[in-house]
Measured scan of single mutants.
Amino acid sequence: PQECLLLEPGLNEIMANSLDYNERLWAWESWRSEVGKQLRPLYEEYVVLKNEMARANHYEDYGDYWRGDYEVNGVDGYDYSRGQLIEDVEHTFEEIKPLYEHLHAYVRAKLMNAYPSYISPIGCLPAHLLGDMWGRFWTNLYSLTVPFGQKPNIDVTDAMVDQAWDAQRIFKEAEKFFVSVGLPNMTQGFWENSMLTDPGNVQKAVCHPTAWDLGKGDFRILMCTKVTMDDFLTAHHEMGHIQYDMAYAAQPFLLRNGANEGFHEAVGEIMSLSAATPKHLKSIGLLSPDFQEDNETEINFLLKQALTIVGTLPFTYMLEKWRWMVFKGEIPKDQWMKKWWEMKREIVGVVEPVPHDETYCDPASLFHVSNDYSFIRYYTRTLYQFQFQEALCQAAKHEGPLHKCDISNSTEAGQKLFNMLRLGKSEPWTLALENVVGAKNMNVRPLLNYFEPLFTWLKDQNKNSFVGWSTDWSPYADQSIKVRISLKSALGDKAYEWNDNEMYLFRSSVAY
């Protein structure tokens, strides 16, 4: 590609939709070469300064400071330590791993069909083939991996386009969902002041979706909304933040926050679980009234959910574990990228498509890292959202599997949720969690119950496949010279610098 592309739109479109291996590689590498390399010296300084700040406030390091958001002291029976968070994340991840490994094996087999000769049947997945710029969410792999393609499509993007949905309609439908469970409408100022579409040439905007509580009843969302099912669900997520903000607005200023950061992320995700169900999509006209649910549509639905929800958990866990180790000084600065990709291979089963030396800073190419967000919130929120969903479905008197529950129109479920939201940070999160779900610790069981039918199906699908991955295989081993030459021509001086062995191999191949 010759034109100058922004991340959004532009590069993200390539990473969402392109099936051209080399075009995807160009976009993936260009973003890291342009952005990651510029941020490397800044990120090194950032780590030093943030650690100084944390230690001045009596924390061991900046990662310890972040984990302090979960700490509860002096509340008998509800205490929770920063170290306990690490333990809980690690042991819940071990419980999730078998499901993830089977999802990984299934996706690898489907990617082998889409990119023959580029995928190893026992290796890691190349990082640039996973549906977005970071491989964070695998949602866009659904069209390549759908188990029963002859069934009606449960990705309702086409239906939204056919019905001329726009950003306003998407957010109005999200608002209807919250109102149906007894939560309030958005304010008039929300509709007047939010930026729900890309302003285009009028001004440059950071398009990463964010929710804003500017105080004095001024709530806004910034999002360059596209007419897709993914953005339909994202709208519910962002509006969930606003509902939380509005619910605790009466609290004293210092207590106007989520019980912990994971709670804030979980609220909209609960609504997304219901909004994505075929039952709900039928009720708002995005699935045909004669759409029939059966075992095959159930597996299609659960796989689509797993690509988004299960596929991202190792990504989140590994990223934050790397940062915690960096802040603690356990990874020397001259080994940041080496350790990043070692951990990516070992924990996530994902491999870099071309080698990256220590001039890169791949983590900082992600919005949340370069903008100083702690990231473990996206792991804890996933466990909380299924715990909350299970409890709210019980309040809504849902009968049947958890993945079929739609809590819309249940004011009982809405009241149970609101009673927790309005507390803000005035009560320990362990107590707030217990008030809703009857337990005071994160628990992976509801998530595993939700995906149980899919897990059973995946194990059957993978019975003749290798489950797990070898960390030795690299996608650039066989194609390295071709890849390096093409990237050198595209990126010039910003391309990865060849070492002596690679230059010798190149000259030998040319001479041959």
Rank of each mutant, 00 (worst) to 15 (best):
Arg256His: 11
Arg381Ser: 06
Tyr373Trp: 04
Glu192Pro: 09
Arg381Thr: 06
Tyr373Val: 05
Tyr378Ala: 07
Asp218His: 14
His208Thr: 02
His208Gln: 10
Phe219Thr: 13
Leu233Gly: 09
Pro252Asp: 00
Asn257Met: 05
His368Leu: 07
Gly189Arg: 15
Asp230Arg: 04
Ile309Thr: 07
Gly189Tyr: 14
Lys216Ile: 15
Glu192Met: 09
Thr234His: 08
Ile309Gly: 01
Gln188Pro: 00
Glu261Gln: 03
His237Met: 05
Phe367Asn: 03
Gly217Pro: 15
Arg381Pro: 01
His241Cys: 01
Glu269Tyr: 06
Arg136Phe: 06
Asn153Gly: 05
Gln305Cys: 03
His241Val: 07
Asp218Ser: 15
Phe367Val: 08
Phe137Trp: 04
Glu261Thr: 07
Arg381Asn: 04
Gly189Thr: 14
Glu261Gly: 06
Pro252Trp: 10
Asn153Met: 06
Trp212Val: 11
Ser272Ile: 08
Ala249Lys: 14
Trp212Pro: 13
Ser374Phe: 04
Pro209Asn: 08
Tyr373Phe: 07
Gln305Lys: 08
Pro252Glu: 01
Arg381Leu: 05
Arg220Phe: 11
Asp372Ser: 03
Phe219Asn: 11
Ala250Asp: 02
Glu261Pro: 07
Ser374Thr: 09
Phe375Lys: 04
Asp213Phe: 03
Asn153Cys: 07
Asp245Cys: 04
Phe137Glu: 05
Asp230Val: 03
Arg377Ala: 04
Tyr373Ser: 10
Ala250Cys: 01
Lys304Ile: 05
Phe367Tyr: 09
Thr234Met: 06
Tyr373Leu: 03
Gln251Ala: 09
Met246Trp: 13
Arg377Lys: 02
Asp218Met: 15
Arg220Ile: 02
Phe137Val: 06
Phe301Cys: 06
Pro252Gly: 07
Arg136Ser: 05
Met229Tyr: 06
Thr308Tyr: 03
Ile309Gln: 04
Thr139Asn: 04
Gly215Glu: 12
Val206Glu: 10
Lys304Glu: 10
Asn140Ile: 01
His368Val: 06
Phe375Asn: 04
Tyr373Met: 08
Thr308Arg: 03
Phe301His: 04
Thr187Met: 11
Thr210Lys: 10
Gly215Tyr: 01
Glu192Trp: 12
Gln251Ile: 12
Glu192Cys: 08
Asn153Ile: 05
Arg256Ile: 06
Pro252Ile: 11
Ile309Tyr: 02
Thr308Ser: 04
Glu261Leu: 07
Glu192Phe: 11
Met229Lys: 11
Gln251Ser: 11
Thr139Pro: 03
Tyr373Gln: 07
Ala250Ser: 05
Phe137Met: 06
Gln188Val: 06
Ser272Asp: 04
Gln251Thr: 11
Asn140Met: 05
Lys216Ala: 15
Asp245Gln: 07
Ser374Arg: 05
Gln251His: 12
Phe301Ala: 05
Ala250Trp: 01
Lys304His: 08
Pro252Phe: 10
Phe137Ala: 08
Glu261Val: 10
Ile309Val: 06
Ser272His: 04
Gly215Cys: 01
Lys216Phe: 15
Asn193His: 00
His237Ala: 04
Asp230Asn: 10
Ser374Glu: 04
